[in-house]
Simulated assay, not measured.
Amino acid sequence: MRGLVTEESGKMVKVHIIRQEACGRCKACLSGYMEADMDIDAQNLCDAEVGDWVELKLQDNAFMNAVLISYGIPLIGFLAGIFLGYFVVSPLVPLPESLVSFGLGVIGVLLCYGWIKSQNPRWEGGKYMPMAVKLTSEGYGVAEEQMR
């Protein structure tokens, strides 16, 4: 994937990615849901400057790991909350078992999302961040003209 560097700040760059027809509607990224192009932050590993075209990469399995963190951990929290609510807490309170277990499941999801959000600074600079790895002189032809 290639994009145009629009901002530079130290070891980070903002890259404008022009959505191509080859992208189709796979929805692997946010641009699959929109007609517009997108801007993303990336690590500047190739000393790119504003106006440079760069090639972007993600580390292997970064997308799948991010999906597992975003959905798998809250699912575990939900199931743990349901289990605790049904077998541990519901015998102690005078409310219906299903209501108690569902409520604790929701609390488990919220706690997991809170933990994920607290870990976000640790993950933002790591392997889940796109990387501008190579300068390229190849633009997108017509798309490059649209940027001007």
Rank of each mutant, 00 (worst) to 15 (best):
M1A: 05
R2G: 09
L4I: 12
V5W: 02
E8A: 14
E8W: 07
E8D: 08
E8K: 15
G10L: 03
K11E: 14
K11T: 14
M12G: 08
K14L: 08
I17G: 02
G24A: 10
G24T: 13
R25Y: 11
R25M: 07
K27P: 08
K27T: 02
C29S: 14
S31W: 10
G32M: 07
G32Y: 04
Y33C: 09
Y33D: 06
A36K: 15
A36F: 10
D39G: 06
D39K: 11
A42N: 09
L45I: 02
C46I: 03
A48H: 00
E55K: 09
L56Q: 01
Q59D: 14
Q59V: 12
M64Q: 10
N65Y: 02
N65D: 14
N65H: 06
Y71M: 09
I73M: 03
I73C: 00
I73R: 00
P74I: 06
P74T: 11
L75R: 13
L75Q: 12
L79P: 11
L79H: 08
A80F: 01
G81K: 00
G81W: 01
I82V: 04
I82C: 02
I82D: 02
L84I: 06
Y86I: 05
F87Q: 13
V88Y: 07
V89Q: 06
V89N: 05
S90K: 01
P91C: 11
P91Q: 12
P94H: 04
S98F: 07
S98A: 14
L99N: 09
L99W: 12
V100H: 03
V100R: 00
V100M: 07
S101F: 04
F102E: 00
F102W: 08
G103Q: 03
G103A: 03
G105Q: 06
I107E: 07
I107A: 15
I107W: 02
I107T: 14
I107H: 05
G108R: 02
L110S: 15
L110V: 15
L111G: 14
W115S: 14
S118A: 15
S118T: 14
S118I: 10
Q119A: 00
Q119K: 11
P121R: 04
P121A: 07
P121D: 11
R122G: 14
R122M: 13
E124S: 12
E124L: 12
E124W: 10
E124H: 13
G125N: 14
K127I: 15
Y128A: 01
Y128N: 05
M129V: 02
P130I: 05
P130R: 03
P130E: 03
P130D: 05
A132R: 06
S137G: 15
G139R: 02
G139K: 01
V142L: 07
E144V: 06
Q146M: 15
Q146W: 12
